[in-house]
């Protein structure tokens, strides 16, 4: 189970209202490569993982992603908490305002709601770890793109922290992939699925 810590992983203090930037950054809340999908992906993949290191790392990284979800929600909230209707109109925020006022809703920058269709739990450790490495790189690219369009230093400081965490997680998943392959038959990693074909010897 989980317990809540009443503190962000990294502080978020944003001075200026900016609805246009908020509607881009919300993609990391509920977009296809965002933190909600990341946490659900890892926390759901744990169940079928046959190895303790993968169970532990997916638990820890999935938990950290929930903390990142909270940080992104905090950025969106602080960018819009003093929003006026005039600023919403000037900042292209009318559609979001009509649907959600200044609530934080899990959607992509393009407006579509979060979908489990943007993630996978394949039930095969090699396949799932590849998905996880790709997910970290997709999130890293999204943060790179946010840095391309944002000129708010308060926001960029937090986004750079989150971007760096994607790279660290990518590294950990890569190590897990190697550790997983080391437990399999080196002549054919794909001879069987160690999460399902349980009666096969791991190595020959």
């Amino acid at each position: 189970m989980w317990s809540y810590e009443k503190q962000l992983q990294y502080p978020v203090r944003i001075k200026n209202t900016n609805p246009r930037l908020a509607s881009a950054i919300i993609s990391q809340y509920g977009g296809p490569d965002g933190e909600l999908g990341a946490s659900l992906r890892y926390l759901s993949q744990r169940y079928s993982m046959p190895f303790d290191d993968a169970k532990g790392a997916l638990t820890d990284i999935g938990t950290e992603e929930l903390g990142h979800l909270e940080m992104i929600g905090s950025i969106v909230h602080q960018l819009t908490r003093d929003l006026t209707p005039e600023q919403a109109k000037a900042g292209g925020f009318e559609a979001y305002l009509v649907d959600h006022t200044t609530g934080v809703y899990p959607q992509a920058a393009a407006g579509f709601p979060w979908s489990a269709g943007s993630m996978q739990v394949k039930g095969d450790p090699i396949t799932d770890l590849h998905e996880d490495m790709a997910a970290e790189m997709k999130a890293r690219t999204t943060y790179d793109n946010i840095l391309r369009i944002s000129d708010d230093p308060d926001v960029n400081d937090v986004i750079r922290f989150l971007r760096a965490r994607e790279i660290v997680h990518y590294q950990r998943f890569g190590e897990l992939l190697v550790r997983t392959q080391d437990r399999l038959n080196e002549k054919n990693f794909f001879a069987f699925n160690p999460a399902f074909d349980k009666n096969k010897p791991m190595k020959h």
Binding site: Y10, P11, D53, A57, D60, V168, R172, E175
Partner: peptide
């Protein structure tokens, strides 16, 4: 102090997950 220490512990624990 408030953010740095817990973060360092968190990140090192994650490293130990793949380098026990």
């Amino acid at each position: 102090e408030r953010y740095g220490r817990p973060f360092a512990a968190w990140d090192l624990r994650l490293y130990l997950d793949t380098h026990p």
